[in-house]
Design a protein around this nucleic acid. Structure first.
Length: 725
RNA sequence: GCGGAGGUGGCGGAAUUGGCAGACGCACUAGCUUGAGGUGCUAGCGAGUUACAUCGUGCGGGUUCAAGUCCCGCUCUCCGCACCA
């Protein structure tokens, strides 16, 4: 079949299946034992075992724990989702299915304990990870420094703790606002109010984030400001988040836009307490920073200083403290799915939650699960899985039926890769010390706050467990762009997907590869166009034609020609360029452009090339193109009588002498404008260049009768004559 | 609103260290080849001009012999987050 294809001069595009078979054959010939039918998967039972082992170690340290929580729930998946897996209020796997809240007992990883480290260690990643990924993580972790202050519920000793970053504006606080879910809300509000609060919660749950209208309800109660003992009304506000800070805020309408909006809506007074610093214009309508006023003993202080001093007072008097709040929450890892690592915990009536002993791992998934897509996890419906005995007391007990989020697998699979046959431990630490951190990690930006934050967390946990010594999983990160079609990200719901299969059917896999690499540098999104793919197809054809019709010229004799020298020079320049592109910046689009220039040069000189040179050039051309279009290169390699697979050959080297141009082309400028050019031997002296420039006819036209102010000479590059008048 | 990345021909993009703007490709135009062309080849292709001068990298300034590249100010586009107190 191979030979028939060549004889019939079949087009490369038709070779796809044929070539896959061919590659397999090559592999067998070379004695590779890779089993093409088997996919590598992280979800192997031995991997479950080490996930479970890790989970138990984390539980021992309090880093894995169980609590009752309001969690995100996707009806489509019939499972819980982590906060990171909620995108625009919808499930990350079902972009149009809104997530809603459910109250459940769930397992969590204490990623919040590492919030500061995740933030601080970004210093190690600066410049080596893309800025936008670091920015997204910083934003997601959401550290903010502020003060917690206790207001007192009027006529009681009960404290209402609020979190603020601007305690310096507390004299301007004209009300305290509670989140609808705040425990105090239920106690202060009764009758009709209860229904209103319930309405607020429902309103929030069903509203797209971004266009939520502020709703408020006066509780009828008042709170005392500990700084000035003034009483302010207590409200409930739908825009106050229970999950952030303390779930209660003080509103300073004069200096905060959101508070202003709320207070003007409900007729709550506005008291300014900050004026602009001297010499600074008032920033309207909100003066955020400046000098404190209307604030008793603090008047005249700069806002930042007031903040420090007032926090210190709160700590001294015991009604508050400096506090750091994070936006990131603990990672909910329980899933009510069948797939995923079973959580290795046992619930005993008497002993509580007991981990499965190490020597009883792996807890395997039962093979006979029934999938209803409803109710409890499939595991909970199987008595043979569910019912067990307590490892501690031997009494009857139930297994945990939740499985782990599959992001657990991806958080450390690359460590297991280094020692994947180890059945004594997750891995041998010395092997990790050899390989880690990963020199270069490549992936999509969509994982910025999912996989890329989880794996950083997991690395720190394993380090603290004494398993590894690196702080970060990957020294460098590269995020590739997406394929865009008709101005939009390819997605099934938009129906604008170009499948790899159809591209392969139409043009062949090499064309698809070459087009993708040529259309844009890899970090950028690339626009798919059919004509662009056609261009790549045409180019491969062009290379193929040249190679096949010059394939058997090796035995020709003859002198080296001028054409030979030209083509060889270009060849060596291009080898250098592609080599450097590969080793440094990965701008394969420019590599391919250079390669195209080489092919153009070969076509232009084809008639005058000598046999030995053209044979030599063809060999290296195939080697150079192979990374971009491997299938057709394997074919050309065989057609031209060469043996062994291309991918086992060594990369061509370049000879700087052959790559060198005959001379330097020097640009002649007058007042920075190009007026001529000369070709000179490399290393021509400054004086000689200046003289040459002044002799140039065109240059003389422009300097004639004018005073030469200055002459700038850059050897081998340019001469710029500056004239006046 | 906050954060990040960008703006170069009709289009995708190149210019890596401040030194010829527009490499390479697509599209387009003309010609050749062909029985035919969804093939191949040759030439042209930023604007303007008969030609030259000239103008030209989002806009306005600046530094420099020289700026797409450096500095200051603005603007628009895309992406992420967003009532985070």
């Amino acid at each position: 079949a191979e030979n028939a294809a060549i004889k019939n001069n079949r087009h490369p595009a038709e070779w796809t299946d044929f070539n896959i078979e061919h590659m397999k054959r090559q592999h067998r010939r070379m004695g590779f034992s890779y089993d093409w039918s088997r996919e590598v998967s992280t979800c192997q039972p031995d991997y479950y075992r080490w996930n479970q082992w890790m989970f138990i170690r984390m539980a021992e340290k309090g880093l894995a724990y169980r609590k009752n929580a309001r969690v995100n729930w996707c009806d489509e998946c019939a499972t819980v989702l982590a906060n990171e897996q909620v995108v625009n209020g919808c499930c990350w796997r079902h972009e149009t299915t809104p997530v809603h809240q459910k109250e459940l007992v769930q397992w969590f990883f204490k990623i919040t304990a590492y919030a500061d480290q995740l933030l601080d260690d970004m210093k190690q990643l600066e410049g080596a990870w893309p800025d936008r990924v670091l920015a997204m993580q910083r934003n997601w972790i959401g550290r903010s420094e502020g003060t917690e202050v206790d207001f007192t519920l009027e006529n009681t000793n009960e404290k209402i703790r609020v979190f603020t970053t601007r305690v310096d504006t507390i004299y301007g606080a004209t009300c305290v606002i509670l989140a609808p879910e705040h425990p105090l809300t239920a106690r202060l509000v009764s009758g009709e109010g209860t229904a209103i609060v319930k309405g607020m919660i429902e309103y929030l749950a069903n509203k797209e984030p971004g266009d939520i209208e502020k709703q408020g309800l006066f509780t009828g109660s008042y709170a005392i400001n500990p700084y000035n003992n003034e009483k302010v009304p207590i409200w409930v506000g739908n825009f106050v988040l229970m999950g952030y800070g303390t779930g209660a805020i003080m509103a300073v309408p004069a200096h905060d836009e959101r508070d202003f909006e709320f207070c003007t809506t409900y007729g709550i007074p506005i008291t300014p307490v900050v004026r602009p610093a001297t010499g600074e214009a008032a920033k309207l309508p909100f003066c955020e920073y400046g000098i404190v006023e209307n604030s008793g003993q603090w008047n005249g202080l700069e806002t930042a200083e007031a903040r420090r001093q007032m926090t210190a007072l709160a700590e001294k008097e015991g009604f508050g403290l400096g506090a750091i709040t994070f936006r990131i929450k603990d990672w909910g890892v329980s899933r009510q799915r069948y797939w995923g690592t079973p959580i290795p915990m046992i619930h005993c009536k008497d002993c509580g939650v007991v981990p499965v002993p190490d020597d009883q791992l792996t807890v395997l998934l039962p093979p006979n699960a029934v999938f209803t897509g409803k109710g409890r996890s499939p595991l909970a419906m199987l008595p043979e899985f569910l019912n067990t005995t307590c490892p501690k007391c031997g009494g009857p007990a139930e297994r945990e039926t939740d499985t782990m989020d599959t992001f657990v697998d991806s958080s450390w699979y690359f460590y297991r890769y280094c020692d994947n046959k180890n059945d004594k431990a997750p891995f041998d630490s010395s092997k990790i010390a050899y390989w880690f951190p990963i020199d270069q990690y490549i992936g999509g930006v969509e994982h910025a706050i999912l996989h890329l934050i989880y794996s950083r967390f997991w690395t720190k946990v394993m380090r603290d467990l004494g398993l590894i010594s690196n702080d970060e999983p990957a020294a460098r990160l590269f995020t590739q762009g997406m394929v865009i079609k008709d101005g939009a990200k390819m997605s099934k719901s938009k129906g604008n997907v170009i499948s790899a299969d159809s591209l392969v059917d139409q043009y062949g896999a090499d064309t698809g590869r070459l087009f993708e690499l040529f259309a844009a540098p890899p970090e950028r999104d690339l626009d798919f166009t059919d004509s662009g793919a056609k261009g790549a197809y045409r180019f491969i054809d062009r290379v193929f034609r040249f190679v096949t019709r010059n394939a058997d010229r090796a035995t020709e004799t003859g002198e080296q020609t001028e054409a030979d020298r030209k083509v060889l020079r270009k060849l060596h320049q291009v080898i250098e360029k592609i080599t450097v592109d590969f080793e440094t910046r990965w701008h394969f689009n420019t590599s391919i452009a250079a390669f195209m220039e080489l092919i153009n040069e070969m076509y232009a000189n084809e008639a005058n090339l000598s046999g030995p040179v053209v044979t030599d050039v063809i060999e290296r051309v195939i080697l150079l193109l192979a990374p971009f279009a491997p299938f057709v290169c394997e074919e050309m390699w065989e057609i031209t009588g060469r043996t062994g697979p291309v991918f086992k050959q060594t990369w061509p080297t370049f000879d700087p002498e052959l790559a060198k141009e005959d001379g330097a082309e020097v640009v002649l400028q007058v007042n920075g404008k190009v007026r001529g050019r000369v070709t000179v031997p490399f290393g021509t002296t400054r004086d000689a260049l200046e003289a040459l420039a002044k002799q140039d006819e065109k240059v003389q036209q422009f300097i004639g009768g004018k005073e030469i102010v200055k002459v700038v000479v850059v050897p081998d590059k340019l001469v710029n004559i500056v004239v006046k008048g």
